[in-house]
Amino acid sequence: MKWVSQDMDMFLGAKEYVDTAVLPLFPVSFGNDIKQSVAMTEFIQLLTIPLERQFKGRMIMLPGHSYLKNKSKEKLLEEVIVWEKELFDNGFKHVFFVTSDSMWKSIEGELKGGLIWLPSIPLAAMDEGARNNILEDQVKQLLQLFMQKWQEDV
């Protein structure tokens, strides 16, 4: 489900079936790595669309958390832990963070939720057909990951 009112009606009616929350993490920077942070954000945004469509009935795709890259790691971690706590407190059994920013990989251990890190691909330079194929491949791998996680809990 997306974070839109139409889907929220469905969510409220079928809460017991929705046990997974996904929070995309979007880096924002105006320094030298401005283009890189844009590419990461763009890639994850594109990727979350097919992911949500595939698992519409079991996961809620949150609008995403944008953060400034020049903040310290500790501060950023603190913020995400607040998110995580809020989601677990609200009854979600699985919480996932999806990002292209490798910074999170180094503090993955501090998070209770699962971190899915995918290297961003320069999609802007590709034509639509190639882009869709690559996205589809990536999504397929992601789906496997989610299904595995769900099965571990059964």
Partner: peptide, 8 residues
């Protein structure tokens, strides 16, 4: 589209 909650 699944008739339950709309997954694929």
């Amino acid at each position: 589209v699944c008739k339950h909650l709309g997954c694929v």
